[in-house]
Design a protein around this nucleic acid. Structure first.
Lengths: 248, 248
DNA sequence: ACCGATATGTCCGTTAACGAACATACCGTG
DNA sequence: CACGGTATGTTCGTTAACGGACATATCGGT
């Protein structure tokens, strides 16, 4: 909301950084096929094993990639916002994946028909390169999630999760209950309550009934495990932020 | 050793299933550039952040993809054998990754110069499709590793690890100390000792000083968590096994 | 046949997270 | 303004894995 362009009437495809990185000619060619859609909270962009009709380029929304196990417990393996796209299996060749993608923070995004994306991708142009490079960043995030699940505490993982979400939002406030965060992290709700309590006592966050406000981001970054920095650094390496890209 | 073609003199690029899946014309074109190399135990195919000169198509070897943390502890995030290739960052666009790749089981493989691969990949032919489809399978494996790390016991993970390794070997015997397995799984050596002890008591495996023999694979599959089946099923979906491919 | 190196076995106390049950606080709605 | 639903807080015992120390077993080489 700080940038003042999160209203549906002010949406712009270039709010998605992948689309923004396209050259003007490629961008212009795709523009007629880009369709603005609202992405409501908890909506499943795709289900495990299901085929996708579109790829989504989020602008103001956040999408979680989740694996749900047989017994119903789940774990988030990656998160995507305006830095990427949802639906990589369309161009990677599988058509579907065993994961499901859920809107974690409501907002907007642009979608592109699967057929259009595939055609564009097959031409081997910029979109192909960007999509593959983004997939590479996604792989890093997934791998680091695996490591983090193995070695770090719930509190560290909560910090990581908050920072990853924060990076994809225009504000320092997120709408998310501790119960839902627990589902994402694949831990108990009580564990999140305890960790969140610590952070609140330390004056780092404040929350009440599904609203979490980050008060002191630097302190949050002190408490997080190395996993956050690794993912961020690798993403920045693959997608260097030039002034051109943000201004353009 | 059951197939009798693991000697260096009897190596064939088509022992790698990705190469075997190529059409004759594409295969013939690549053949002159495929170079047989031995892959000795514990050799690092690439280091974290390092650039790759080659992609590797393992035939009789197994390669582990590992993340090493600041404090030295590590975790395997995926494993590749004759079902895939090592060095996806070359064609995904990053040139490097934060992971390292280590030979987990010595053997052979074919390598292809990075420049040759990139050129072939850029043409958008079969190799591109196969490589991307394999990457998709790898992503599934990584995601499932993340879930497994979160929710399953050391014993279940040991079973998964044994089965994934077994699938990539011609025998039911693997050379691997419990210490090294512990490094792969990111757990303590004692934890592996305990879990392996259970399996041995149950008559499922037998081991001594770095040699593990799987005696009863069906029972191993009973004890493993769902993660193994998910990865295998997804791999088989992406790479259906036709008689043609094995005979051809 | 012995030695040293390495692999495996077993013990201890400690801890983080679990699973379950229950208590409290807060919000919007009627 | 009372109510019901939902979010958060707290407690209990239990467990899997940890970290460290140490004992034993097995192999290859001289």
């Amino acid at each position: 909301m700080t940038t003042g362009n999160t209203e549906s009437t002010k949406q712009n495809p270039k709010d998605n950084r992948l689309l923004a990185a396209l050259s003007e000619t490629d961008y212009e060619r795709l523009l007629p096929d880009l369709e603005l859609v609202p992405l409501p909270l908890a909506w499943a962009v795709y289900e495990a094993g299901g085929t996708l009709g579109y790829v989504y380029f989020p602008t103001t929304s956040i999408i979680s990639l989740l694996y749900v196990m047989e017994n119903g417990s789940s774990a988030e393996i990656a998160v995507t916002g305006n830095d990427g796209l949802v639906g990589i299996s369309l161009f990677m060749g599988g058509e579907s994946t065993p994961s499901r993608a859920v809107v974690q923070s409501a907002g907007y995004g642009y979608r592109l028909k699967a057929s259009v994306l595939k055609k564009e991708f097959a031409q081997g142009g910029e979109l192909q390169h960007l999509a593959l490079r983004y997939t590479q960043a996604l792989i890093t995030q997934m791998a680091q999630t695996a490591v983090c699940n193995r070695h770090h505490t719930v509190e560290q993982q909560l910090c990581r999760w908050l920072l990853l979400s924060l990076d994809r939002l225009p504000t320092n406030e997120l709408s998310m209950t501790q119960e839902l965060i627990a589902n994402m992290l694949g831990v108990r709700r009580e564990g999140v309550t305890e960790a969140a309590g610590h952070l609140q006592n330390a004056g780092i966050i404040s929350y009440s009934r599904g609203k979490i406000t980050v008060l002191d981001r630097p302190k949050l970054e002190q408490r997080v495990c190395e996993c956050y920095a690794v993912v961020k650094k690798e993403h920045d390496r693959l997608f260097p932020q030039t002034k051109d890209q943000t201004v353009h």
